[in-house]
Amino acid sequence: PPGQVFTLKPIQVFPSLHHRLNSKVTLFATTSSKSYFVTANADVSSHILHNLSTTLHPIIKTPILRLLSSPIPPTIAPSLCLATAELVGGNRILALNAACALHLIHVVAHTHTTIINHQHLTEFSLGTELLTRDELLALVYEMVAGTPSDDAETATRLLKVLMEVATTATAVAFVDVKQREGKLAVCAAVCGAILGGGNEEEIERARRLGMFIGNIELAKAEVELVLGFEEVKAKAIRRLLQEMLSTHFDD
C-alpha cells in the first residue's frame, strides 16, 4: 500500500546461536563476545536494503522486500566471505557486495525449492514469487558489478569473482540444502580471498577452507588455517568457526 515502510529483517542466525555463544569451547580462541556471524549478516542486510534501486516501481520492489524479509534459513556464506577477506589481509568492506550477492543466491535457491513444492514464502502468488526470484538473481550480478574497481588488477579480480558467483548460482539450483551450503561456503571463501587481495596460493587454500567449513569439518578447517595463513590475520575467521562449533556441537 502507498506509504508503507518495510524493514529488511536481519539474516537469520543458526538455530540457538544466541543461547549458545557462551558455551565452553576451547578449540578456537576468541577475543570478543560479540558474534561475528550476527554482526556481519546485519551489515549485509543493511547493505542490500540500501542498494535496492529507488527507481524500482512498488509493484516490483514490494515483493522483493517481502521475499527478503521472509523466513529464509540461515547460511554461513556472507559472513565467511567477509572473514576470508580479512584472513588474507584485506578490508572486509571490499567483499561486502560479494557477500550480499551470496545471500541473494541463497534466497533465490531457497525460493526455487519452495515454489516447486507449491509452498508460499509471502502473501503473493507463486507466479509473483517466481518472477521476484528472477529479479533477485539479476540483482546478484548488479551487486558484484557494483564493487569499486579503480585499476586493472582490481578489475581482473572482480571478473574472477563474477565467474565464481555465476558458476555457483547455477550449481546451487540443482542440489539439496546440504550441498547448497557447501557450494556457497566454497564460493564465499574464494570470493573473499580474491577481493581481499590474496595470492593464488591463498585463494586455493581458501577454497579448501570453504569446503571444510561448508561440510562442518571444523578440525580440518583449523589445520588449513594453521598451515596456510598468518595467525594475526585469522581472528575473524576463528570467531566465526567458534560460533559454528558452539552451534553444531554439544559442550
Results as ranks from 00 to 15, higher is better:
Ala95Trp: 03
Ile93Ala: 12
Thr75Ile: 03
Leu121Pro: 01
His106Ala: 08
Thr55Gln: 06
Gln119Pro: 02
Leu87Ile: 11
Ser69Arg: 10
His47Ala: 08
Ile59Ala: 15
Arg92Gly: 02
Ala42Thr: 13
Thr113Met: 15
Ala77Arg: 11
Pro74Gly: 04
Asp43Tyr: 14
His112Leu: 14
Val108Gly: 00
Lys34Arg: 12
Leu96Trp: 01
Ala101Asp: 05
Leu82Lys: 05
His103Met: 05
Ser69Asp: 05
His50Trp: 14
Asn117Asp: 05
Ala101Asn: 04
Ala42Phe: 08
His57Cys: 10
Leu68Met: 12
Thr122Tyr: 04
Ser46Thr: 11
His110Ile: 08
Ala42Ile: 10
Thr55Leu: 06
Thr113Leu: 15
Asn117Cys: 05
Val107Gly: 05
Thr122Arg: 07
Ile116Leu: 09
Ala40Ile: 01
Phe37Glu: 03
Gly90Arg: 05
Leu27Phe: 12
Ser79Glu: 07
Leu56Thr: 01
Leu52His: 06
Tyr36Ser: 02
Thr31Tyr: 12
His106Gly: 07
Thr39Tyr: 06
Leu94Ala: 14
Pro78His: 11
Ser33Arg: 13
Thr111Met: 02
Thr113Glu: 15
Pro63Thr: 09
His47Asn: 04
Glu86Leu: 12
Ser53His: 09
Thr39Pro: 04
Thr84Ser: 13
His50Met: 15
Ala109Asn: 03
Thr54Asp: 09
Ser33Leu: 14
Ala83Ser: 13
Asp43Asn: 10
Phe28Asn: 02
Ala29Lys: 10
His50Asn: 15
Arg66Met: 14
Ile105Ala: 07
Thr75Phe: 02
Lys61Pro: 00
Ser70Gln: 13
Leu96Pro: 00
Thr39Cys: 10
Val107Ser: 10
Ser53Met: 12
Gly89Lys: 06
His112Thr: 07
Ser79Leu: 13
Leu96Asn: 04
Asn51Glu: 07
Ala95His: 03
Thr75Gly: 00
Lys34Trp: 06
His103Glu: 05
Val108Asn: 00
Glu86Ser: 13
